[in-house]
Design a binder for these strands. Structure first.
Lengths: 194, 194
DNA sequence: AGGTTGATGTCAGTGACAGACATCAGCCGT
DNA sequence: ACGGCTGATGTCTGTCACTGACATCAACCT
């Protein structure tokens, strides 16, 4: 007989999402989440540094997806093309079965500013990681930063569309289209003298 | 004789920045900030919803600067050109005398993740506001969102450069150059078929 | 059998915030 | 001149997020 049920963080995450979705984020205490799976508040905070973090854990998987995408790009690809590869790679992570879960999760986030802050910050960190990876490929600092941030703009926008009700295309397809739109939007512009 | 010194929020902000810069953000309690200007913790939280907010108050001015920049753009300007106008308008807010203050403020933020979250979120809100303003000009949702987010990418990147030590160019000039760089970065790319 | 380990529980404490209520200088109408 | 109103502040009290220190105890190792 095992002393503790395995997968404690996962059980906490499921319980938390459920409670957040029904009672609301602020109306749910960390103690309630923990107790709902037979644990104590202290244990909750041993697994998650933060009450918010219970909704954001697992981001490292996404990060790896982005980074392997960057590394899988051909050596002579332009920064933006590399980012396009990273987007495709990361999009694969969000399969169709994942959509309902992502939807409820996002609806919780959308209803709470504190969670939105965490989300923006995670996207920012992702951009920083990608920029680092681009730099490692020899891209200059400024280009790397801009390309990475632009990639996150596309990803964030595409994700919002993917979550939208009625939407059925894959995230990869949407991201592709959003990127194309961005290129068109920017491409048409004159070099803008001061 | 006046009952209370005027400019309470400003005094609190100055005191907070000073304390954050010397002792560090986490090591400074809201009570300490308040007491350092002869007030109580409760009063502090009447002026700022948050301990962090004491560093971010006044963002509405920046927002207005961006929005008037958007509105000042010629009617036939492309979304990106409109954003370029907004950037120029907002950059005017950051005069050269402001730089030292911005530097110490940013150094505090850079040392604390919680503050970085707030900052990312504020930039995101700014993007949303600009997108709304673009929509009001008749730009479609997707283009508005992308243009606005791209604008914030440029602004954030330019701001970081402006803050950098040794840097002497105006924020407007830097933003212009960063935008040019981004256009070049994106412009060269092929339409990227799937 | 006995020591070790690692996830958990218990307890106590700090600090961020919020509601309810009291205070009281200055202003305003009479 | 007097009394009530106002609005920024203080006081008091409570909740909850989070943390350090220490105890527990099944499984595992030797």
């Amino acid at each position: 007989m095992v002393r503790w049920e395995p997968g404690t963080p996962e059980r906490l995450q499921r319980a938390a999402l459920e409670l957040f979705a029904t009672r609301g984020y602020e109306q749910t205490t960390a103690t309630e989440i923990a107790r709902s799976v037979g644990l104590t508040e202290r244990t909750f905070f041993r697994h998650f540094t933060d009450k918010r973090e219970v909704l954001f854990h697992g981001q490292h998987v996404l990060r790896e997806a982005f980074l392997t995408g960057v590394e899988s790009a051909p050596a002579d690809a332009s920064p933006i093309d590399v980012v396009a590869c990273a987007l495709r790679s990361a999009s694969a992570f969000f399969t169709d079965e994942r959509r309902p879960h992502s939807r409820t999760r996002q609806s919780v986030i959308d209803r709470n500013p504190a969670l939105q802050e965490r989300e923006s910050h995670k996207l920012g960190s992702l951009a920083a990681a990608i920029a680092g990876s681009l730099r490692a490929r020899g891209v200059d600092e400024l280009s790397a930063t801009l390309a990475a941030k632009t990639g996150m703009t596309v990803f964030g926008t595409a994700f919002t569309l993917w979550i939208g009700e009625g939407e059925e295309r894959s995230l990869a397809d949407i991201a592709d289209e959003v990127l194309r739109k961005l290129l068109e939007l920017v491409g048409r512009t004159s070099p803008a003298g001061s």
